[in-house]
Design a binder for these strands. Structure first.
Length: 548
RNA sequence: GGGCCUGUGGCUCAGCCAGGUCAGAGCGGCUGGCUCUUAACCAGCACGCCGUGGGUUCAAAUCCCACCAGGCCCGCCA
């Protein structure tokens, strides 16, 4: 098989099927549409910025990181076709704390409505609550080798990065208020400015209502009259004051802030979840009509839901952090989840990690030609997906593969000591692998973590034994104790003998043994396993059961 | 009130976004192999009018329309 021919073939295929864009993934499609649009708009293409918001008010979950990962994917696709591009990760740390996430200390309730960048870090390791939350996301991005430029929202206001846009928006607040009413039926901003000052007295945001804009002084006048936040009435402190809108004395409402960001930072692409679709619609209009900046190209995506169909929510407590995923799966498996497709809702849980782990291996098989894919379009797409997962720098050789569930299953019954080696030895004896390298050992560790947490073996219950089964088990224990050095095969036969002498179907006795030793109805070859975990320990577990 | 997603063998789902060996996978079930009887592995079998009805096309699970059934988001919180 020679490289040149292969390339020629690919050329032909592409010519024959013009519809395949770039590497055939949705990222390529987005990048192409985006560039086409920019060309029509006649903007400079010397640097195409893409943006992702980083929530800072709750515990970030896989969905939050997905936004950034996908934006990065688009950046990669842009670079792939020769455009300079960067990802801005913008932390919404000027936002107020609306609700204390489940599991965090009670005292945070005293900080409701305070900007999260001003709240102490309950974990004590970062400069603020907001910094801590954002760091969970950026840490996740780092682990995924996603490159980005971090921008703190609070800092953006402090430095006046958005000042020009804030001023323009406030100067046109009447028009904006009317438009919001027209577009969404929300009349609030006909009466109130789309700006939330931080109350100079109580330090809270959202509770102070900005009722007038002083054009010359670039100030809003406000009174702290309270607000309803997350369906809870929050009392104001009654303070009246003014805020300099060119400083960090407040922030724009979401219905106008994106527009300011896009214009100020020259953002050309931003994806968004359907939950903020309305805000994006308004912001697009503001960007265009008020700020004279054509809004970025968008892609809308569905939420990640949990298995019960609930939105994975920062405050609901069903959070599924990127770190949690990475406890059980490789970075590649998480990137696969994000890059595979963007359309459609996905009900997600850690139970899905094995599937994504194995699917990555399957992609790799196709990429390296171990598995043939006849359909050229599919081949290209599959390879493209694999390449994006590897940040367009795929490995030179395939990794060692073995079914994740198989690894997990073996790990779940492996002795605690030398567990990784045990699993690898078993896999070799099954001829599932020939050898193991460090990357594979890591995979074993991940699968072992998964097994510990989710494998059914964890549901160890009391085992009900029939009288004859008790006798049989007692005989087995007796044998093991007398001959602790017995061979695996011998023990295996003793179990069959015990079944026969007591007229128990072997299947039943084995099931009982498995339930006692591993907690499952099935398991590895028992003789071998008993030797592996140590005859003494096996005998102890068995007799312990008999004593009950 | 507005918007979106999903509906594929017993179960869980992939495929749909750029129509054509796509009717698939895993689990479960069944049969057989691995020197008998447990795991794993291997070979094979069964099970589907791809929600319903129209339309576009040489060709539709895939595109369009309508409808039915689930679910999600937004509705003056952000």
């Amino acid at each position: 098989m020679n490289q040149e021919n292969e390339n020629e073939n690919e050329e032909e295929i592409v010519n024959a099927n013009e519809k395949i864009i770039g590497r055939g993934t949705w990222l390529d499609k987005v990048a192409e549409d985006l560039v086409e649009r920019e060309k029509k708009l006649g903007r400079s293409l010397s640097l195409i910025r893409v943006e992702s918001g980083l929530g800072a008010s709750g515990i970030p979950h896989v969905g939050s990181i997905g936004d950034a990962v996908r934006a990065y994917g688009v950046r990669q696709a842009l670079k792939d076709v020769g455009y300079n591009s960067e990802l801005i990760a913008y932390s919404d740390d000027m936002d107020g704390l609306r609700k204390v996430p489940v599991g965090l200390p009670e005292w945070l309730n005293d900080y409701i409505a305070h900007p999260v960048s001003k709240i102490p870090d309950p974990f004590g390791c970062h400069s603020s609550y907001g910094a801590h939350m954002s760091s969970i996301l950026t840490d996740g991005l780092d682990k995924l080798s996603v490159e980005y430029k971090f921008q703190s929202g609070a800092e953006a206001y402090r430095k006046g990065l958005l000042a020009n846009q804030v001023v323009k928006i406030l100067e046109n607040s009447r028009l904006i208020g009317e438009k919001i009413s027209e577009m969404l039926g929300q009349t609030k901003f006909e009466d109130v400015l789309p700006y939330y000052p931080v109350c100079g007295s109580c330090g809270r945001i959202y509770v102070a209502e900005a009722y007038r804009y002083e054009r010359e002084e670039k100030k809003v006048l406000y009174r702290c009259r309270g607000a309803e936040i997350a369906h809870k009435k929050i009392e104001g402190c009654g303070h009246e004051g003014e805020a300099d809108v060119t400083k960090d004395q407040g922030k724009l409402s979401w219905k106008s802030e994106f527009a300011a960001r896009w214009a100020a930072l020259d953002i050309r692409f931003e994806a968004y979840g359907k939950d903020i679709a309305d805000s994006v619609k308004v912001n697009d209009w503001i960007a265009e009509a008020v700020l004279n900046y054509p809004p970025p190209f968008h892609v809308k995506y569905e939420m990640f839901l949990d298995k019960s169909g609930k939105k994975i929510s920062k405050s609901l407590g069903n959070v599924f952090t990127p770190q949690a995923w990475l406890t059980y799966g490789t970075p590649q498996s998480l990137l696969l989840l994000m890059y595979k497709r963007i359309a459609g809702t996905r009900n997600l849980s850690v139970e899905d990690i094995p599937t994504y782990m194995d699917e990555y291996d399957a992609l790799e098989d196709v990429y390296f030609g171990k598995v043939k894919e006849e359909n050229p379009a599919k081949l290209r797409k599959t390879k493209g997906l694999y390449e994006y997962i590897n940040h367009l720098n795929p490995p030179k050789a395939p990794s060692i593969h073995a079914s994740y569930r198989l690894i997990a299953q073996i790990a779940s019954v492996a002795p605690k000591e030398g567990r990784t080696d045990y699993v690898i030895e078993r896999l070799k004896s099954y001829r599932a692998i020939k050898e193991a390298d460090e990357a594979f050992r890591e995979k074993v560790r991940l699968a072992a973590n998964w097994a510990d947490e989710f494998s059914k073996t964890t549901e160890k219950t009391k085992v009900e034994l029939t009288p004859v089964e008790r006798i049989a088990v007692a005989q087995i224990v007796d044998f093991i104790r007398k001959t602790p050095k017995a061979e695996a095969e011998t023990i295996q036969n003793v179990i069959f003998e015990a079944a026969k002498t007591n007229s128990i179907p072997p299947t039943d006795l084995f099931r009982a043994m498995y339930r006692i030793l591993i907690g499952t109805n099935r398991g590895p070859r028992l003789g071998t396993y008993i030797v592996d975990i140590g005859t003494e320990r096996a005998a102890d577990s068995l007799s312990e059961q008999l004593d009950q």
